[in-house]
C-alpha cells in the first residue's frame, strides 16, 4: 500500500481543475432540472409539492444521480490517449482510489443535497406564499436519508468497481451489474422459501394450507395459513430468526461493499493500456 497525502491533494486538485467546466455545468443543469420539476409539481399537484414527495424525490434522485456520477469517475480511463496520461501520472492506485471514493461517497452527495435543498426551499417558498399550499419544507428528518445512504453505501462500491472495469457504456453495464444479481438473488430467495414452506405442508393439520408470502434471508419467513371452515381471512405468521443470529446476514451485507472496494482497487492497480 503506497499512499502519500501530498500526492492525494495534488490529484484532487487536478480532478477539480480538469473537470471544472463539466462539474459547474453539471451543477447548473441539475439545479435547472430540479427547479423545473419541482415548480411543475407545485403548480400542478392538487396539494402542491408535498413534504412526502420532497422526501421521496430527494432519496431517489440522490441514489440515482450518485450512481450516474460514480460511473463517470474514471472516465479518463475510457480513451487511449487519456488513459496513457492517467496511468503514467506518478500516483498510486490507492491515491487514485481515495480521490474517487471522496468524490463519489462524500462530495457528490453533499453537493447534491445542497443543490436539492436550495431548489426545494425556493419552490417551497413559492408553494406556500404564492400558491397557498400549506406544505412543510423537507430538510432531512433522518428516516428516508438513512435508507438512501444505506442503499448508496451498498451499491457505490459495485459502481466504482464497474467504473474501473468497463471502459465503454459504463453506466448501462453498471446498471446491468447492479440489477442482474438482485433479480437472480430475489428469484432464488423466493424459490427456496417456497420449497421450505411446501416441505412443511405434510406436517400441517388436516385441511390446513400453508403458503409462502415473503422472506428476507437470515431475518424472517412470512407464511399464510388458511384454515378450513373458518370464515375469517387467512392468517399470516412471521417466523423470525432470533435477533442474536441475524448478525450473520448483517455481517455478510457489511462485507460486500468492502469486497467490491478492494476489487475496484485491485482492478485499478492492474490497469493496462
Amino acid at each position: 500500500m503506497n499512499f502519500s497525502f501530498h500526492r492525494f491533494i495534488l490529484l484532487l486538485k487536478m480532478q477539480f481543475a480538469v473537470n471544472r467546466r463539466f462539474y459547474l455545468l453539471g451543477i447548473a443543469a441539475l439545479a435547472g432540472l430540479l427547479l423545473v420539476y419541482m415548480f411543475f409539481r407545485a403548480a400542478n399537484g392538487d396539494f402542491g409539492f408535498e413534504f412526502d414527495a420532497q422526501e421521496e424525490n430527494y432519496a431517489f434522485t440522490m441514489c440515482f444521480l450518485t450512481v450516474v456520477f460514480g460511473t463517470m469517475i474514471f472516465r479518463q480511463l475510457g480513451s487511449k490517449p487519456q488513459r496513457i496520461q492517467a496511468l503514467m501520472l506518478p500516483v498510486s492506485a490507492l491515491e487514485r482510489m481515495s480521490v474517487a471514493f471522496l468524490m463519489v461517497f462524500i462530495l457528490f452527495p453533499i453537493v447534491y443535497t445542497l443543490v436539492y435543498f436550495l431548489c426545494s426551499g425556493l419552490v417551497n417558498l413559492v408553494d406556500v406564499h404564492v400558491l397557498s399550499h400549506p406544505n412543510e419544507w423537507y430538510l432531512l428528518n433522518g428516516e428516508m436519508e438513512i435508507k438512501a445512504l444505506t442503499i448508496l453505501m451498498l451499491t457505490l462500491p459495485v459502481v466504482l468497481f464497474c467504473a474501473v472495469w468497463f471502459r465503454r457504456l459504463t453506466f448501462v453495464k453498471t446498471m446491468v451489474m447492479l440489477c442482474v444479481p438482485l433479480l437472480v438473488f430475489s428469484f432464488f430467495n423466493s424459490v427456496l422459501s417456497k420449497m421450505v414452506v411446501n416441505n412443511a405442508a405434510p406436517s400441517a393439520p388436516k385441511g390446513v394450507e400453508y403458503s409462502y408470502w415473503a422472506s428476507t434471508p437470515f431475518s424472517y419467513l412470512a407464511v399464510v395459513v388458511k384454515t378450513p371452515n373458518v370464515e375469517s381471512d387467512p392468517q399470516s405468521f412471521n417466523v423470525l430468526l432470533p435477533a442474536g443470529q441475524q448478525w450473520v446476514f448483517t455481517l455478510f451485507l457489511c462485507l460486500i461493499p468492502f469486497l467490491f472496494l478492494y476489487l475496484a482497487y485491485l482492478k485499478l492497480r492492474e490497469q493496462e493500456l
Partner: peptide, 17 residues
C-alpha cells in the same frame, strides 16, 4: 507502477489529449 518509478519515467505518447 510505483509512484517512485513513475516520477523517473516520462512518456511522450503519439496520440494525446
Amino acid at each position: 507502477r510505483d509512484p517512485a518509478f513513475l516520477q523517473q519515467v516520462c512518456l511522450l505518447p503519439e496520440d494525446f489529449e
